[in-house]
């Protein structure tokens, strides 16, 4: 039975217009889904490192798509060619669309030239999952680290990206830092471009 819905029937996905990104679902719907993603992956691994790697891989493919979609829709088809440009794209555009806000901070590492950190007081995926003590340093933010790596790698800025809990003085819960370590080729190209 054809209902009274407003959505037109398209013969093929390629005929359907790209979404404007305004549709929403409840946070809890996402939380339930994400929780199943984590729990499923727990059954597939023997240790925390493997669990994080699987979540990162799951996020990577999301990042590849997010890069293309958002550059087109939000940045008027502007392709980032500089390091600070792509970092700003991640910290502002990607974060705003996926998490509803720009990231709390973007900092350059003080000890290493090739390191940058995007930090969030309460990363969305860490808000509703409490890590049991026997899981040590496991961070669900690995999924987000994967998304970031997917964006950076496909944009031509390969990097190792990991998620870490960082205790903050005066705060009960630690903040989450996404640590980005760029490959050498990226820094060489940056130097060359001047």
């Amino acid at each position: 039975m054809i209902g009274v819905g407003k959505m037109k029937q398209y013969t093929n996905v390629l005929d359907r217009p790209l979404s404007k990104g305004k549709q929403e679902v409840s946070l809890s719907a996402f939380a339930f889904l994400f929780s199943e993603l984590v729990q499923y992956n727990q059954t597939q691994v023997d240790n925390i490192a493997e669990l994080e790697r699987r979540l990162e891989d799951a996020g990577y493919a999301v990042g590849a798509r997010v890069l293309e979609l958002l550059c087109h829709r939000e940045k008027g088809n502007r392709r980032e060619t500089r390091l600070l440009g792509i970092l700003s794209f991640v910290h502002s555009t990607v974060w705003k669309v996926l998490f509803g806000k720009v990231a709390d901070s973007l900092e350059k590492g003080t000890e290493h030239e090739d390191e940058y950190m995007i930090s969030e007081k309460e990363l969305l995926v860490n808000r509703f999952i409490s890590i049991p003590k026997d899981m040590g340093t496991f961070n669900c933010g690995a999924f987000v680290a994967g998304i970031v790596r997917g964006v950076l790698d496909n944009a031509g800025f390969p990097a190792v990206v990991t998620a870490h809990f960082v205790p903050v003085e005066g705060q009960q819960r630690p903040r989450t830092t996404i640590l980005i370590k760029f490959a050498e080729e990226v820094l060489r190209r940056e130097a060359r471009l001047g």
Partner: peptide, 19 residues
Amino acid sequence: FQEVHELYIKTLLNPLYLP
């Protein structure tokens, strides 16, 4: 190019398409 670009993005958004 711009129109094909959009077709490409739609293709890429298919979670069952391997980039």
